[in-house]
Every structure is written in C-alpha cells, then in structure tokens.
C-alpha cells in the first residue's frame, strides 16, 4: 500500500520563474499517473522534486503519510528511470543492478537471486555479464527499469523513459512497462510529452501547462471531454475555431452552428472524426487537400477567411481539391475565458 501525495508544491527557479505553481496530486496505490505537457510545463521538475533531485520552494510531498519533502534522494523510497537511461557504463549489467542492493548490505546470494529475478521480469534473463554499451537502446532502458525495480521502491518515477527510442520500439516498450507495472502493482508517476504514451499507459492523466494543472482525468475523459481549450488542442487533433455567438448561433466566416450559450466570443472545438461533410456549392468551406491513409482519409478545408479545418472521412475518393462542402459537426465543445461553457455528445 503506497500512496504518493503532493500538496501545494511550488518551485521557484532563480530569477523568479515559477516552474511549478501550487501543484497538488494524490496518486493511489498501484496507480499509474502520467504527467503530460509541453516542454517547460514543469512536469520534469515536479518528478525530480518527488525523486529528491530538486527542492520545492514550498509545499509538502508525502509517501504513505511520511513527509519526504526535504529528504535526500538516497533516503527516499522512490526509484527513478531517467530519459537517458543513465546506466553506469563502467559496470556490467549485473553490477548496475546489484549496486543498490550492495549498499543495503544484502548477502551475496540474496543479491544474485534478486538481480536474476528482475532480469527475468524485464525479459533480459542471462544478460547479467553483458556490458551496458553492448546493449541496444531498448535493452538499456529495460536494464534501467530493472535497476529501479530490483530495490522494490514504493514509488516508481519514469522521466520520459522512451524519448530516445524510435517509434516502433517505443510502442513495444510502453506495453511492456505497463504490463510490468501492473504485475508488480507499483505506484507510478510517469512524465511524458507524448500524448500517445499517456493515453495508452495511464490510469489517470495530469495535463500540465506553465507549472499548473489544466486537467486531471482518466485518458478517455481527457480525450472526450477536455476542460480547457489548451487540453483540447494538446490531446489528439482538434479543430479550435475562434468565433462569436449571437442569438444562440456560433459564427466564423461562412460557417455557423447552433450553440446555446450567452452572446459573446467563443472557441468551438470539433474533433476531425466528429465532423461530417456535405457536398454543396459554393458551401461553407473549400477542400484544400485530400490525404488518403487507406483506412480513412483526412481532408484539409479552408473557410473563406483562411481558417483551417480538418475532417476525417471514410471515403476520401468522393472529394477533390477545390470542391465546396458544408460542415455538420456531430459533437462540439465550446470554451470561453479558458473554461468549457458547452458540450454536446454525438
């Protein structure tokens, strides 16, 4: 049973910039929470504060109720996997994994047993005598994960662990890591700027921006019901159309859509897959480009004032460049003053 609690944590960098701004989060036992945000959103700083490599300016971090806010990293029950794997290249795989156990003065046969067990767990049984530099990028990252897991930390911290790997390997490894995390049942905090990673691995996603939380929710909720235009634009592809509402109708150039909110400016959010197109001349928009992906097609549309809109269609062959279409969204959300003011489901 390990619960991580972060309460009102603020980190000021020299010069006064707020890397993290009164951030709070509770990670439940066995849960995998993803910190997702663009670079500079403070997610890595937050993770490093949990690991003990940065000191919060104010706030409280506890694990199972124990205050660890100002504990040095070597005393904390946390295990961190670094983006650059940070394996010790002057040691072989076994020694990398055994180092922490030796510091705990475990007997040699116990160390051997645990190292071999964890190597099996990450699918690298028998690799103990390999030099770190002889391993592929994916294997190195697995050893780095094993190095943390072998010490059975209460909280596992992952700092963009797949960022240096190629796309194919990244997808395979994130499934593996998710499997291992669930098998071990370890409470995990995961930092990434890749939404695919967050959506496919996390129990909950924390979308961060400028050191603050934009939204904390399950991945499907974050995708379907983004609470701010930033989240809407950051997760998946989203058409964000700025316009005005008057008398229950949203208007941008030649495009209009009924929207039951008070008059004023608004940002309309429509997923490309929730936007139906009806051929019409002259139509509200013109087809700018048709891209056929085989399974589906993606259309780039232009409103008369130049606003770009993307739409996903099943049969891209029906459309051609320059053709006029009318837009018929099946589901929309609307934002004003950085807050959601309307949402309809398909």
């Amino acid at each position: 049973m390990s619960v991580l609690t972060i309460k009102d944590v603020t980190k000021l960098f020299p010069g006064g910039t707020k890397a993290v701004d009164s951030f709070s989060l509770e990670v439940a036992d066995g849960e995998l929470v993803c910190l997702l945000g663009p670079s500079g959103s403070g997610k890595s700083t937050l993770l490093r504060m949990v690991g003990g490599f940065e000191q919060p300016t104010s706030g409280l971090i506890t694990i199972d109720g124990q205050d660890i806010t100002h504990m040095p990293p070597e005393k904390r029950p946390t295990g961190m996997v670094f983006q650059s794997h940070a394996l010790w290249t002057h040691m072989d795989v076994f020694k990398n994994l055994a180092f922490g156990l030796k510091l705990r003065r475990l007997p040699a046969d116990e160390i051997k047993r645990r190292v071999e067990a964890v190597l099996e767990l990450v699918g690298l049984g028998g690799y103990g005598s390999r030099r770190v530099t002889q391993l592929s990028g994916g294997q190195q990252q697995r050893v780095a994960l094993a190095r943390s897991l072998v010490l059975e930390p209460k909280i596992l911290l992952l700092d963009e662990p797949f960022a240096s790997l190629d796309q194919h390997l990244r997808e395979r490894l994130r499934e593996e890591v998710r499997d291992i995390q669930q098998r071990v049942g370890i409470t995990t905090l995961f930092v990434t700027h890749g939404q695919d990673e967050a959506l496919s691995m996390a129990d909950r996603i924390v979308v961060m921006r400028d050191g603050r939380t934009e939204q904390i929710d399950r991945p499907d909720v974050v995708y379907r019901d983004p609470q701010t235009p930033f989240v809407a634009g950051f997760i998946g592809t989203m058409n964000l159309i700025e316009g005005t509402v008057s008398n229950g109708t949203f208007t941008r150039a030649s495009f209009s859509h009924p929207l039951a909110v008070a008059d004023g400016p608004a940002t309309l959010a429509i997923r490309p897959e929730a936007l139906d197109l009806v051929a019409a001349e002259p139509g509200a928009a013109k087809v700018h480009r048709v891209t056929d992906y085989g399974t589906h097609g993606l259309l780039d549309l232009n409103l008369p004032d130049g606003t770009r809109v993307k739409a996903m269609v099943d049969h891209p062959g029906q459309f051609k460049n320059g053709q006029g279409v009318n837009l018929a969204p099946r589901a929309v959300a609307a934002y004003r003053d950085n807050k959601q003011i309307f949402r309809s489901e398909a």
Partner: peptide, 28 residues
C-alpha cells in the same frame, strides 16, 4: 553524465559514495 550520479543517489548512495563509485571511475 550527471544523470549517472543522480541514478546512484537514487539507489541509495551517499554523495561521497557516488563520487567514489561512479564519478571517479567514469572520469578515470
């Protein structure tokens, strides 16, 4: 690589131990 040193702190090494076991051999 400072991350190597941090990783050693992370698994429980004191700053002095990190210098002796990681930094010095790396710079050796």
């Amino acid at each position: 690589d400072r991350r190597m040193e941090e990783a050693a702190r992370d698994v429980g090494a004191s700053p002095l131990r990190v210098f002796w076991s990681i930094t010095l051999p790396q710079a050796g």
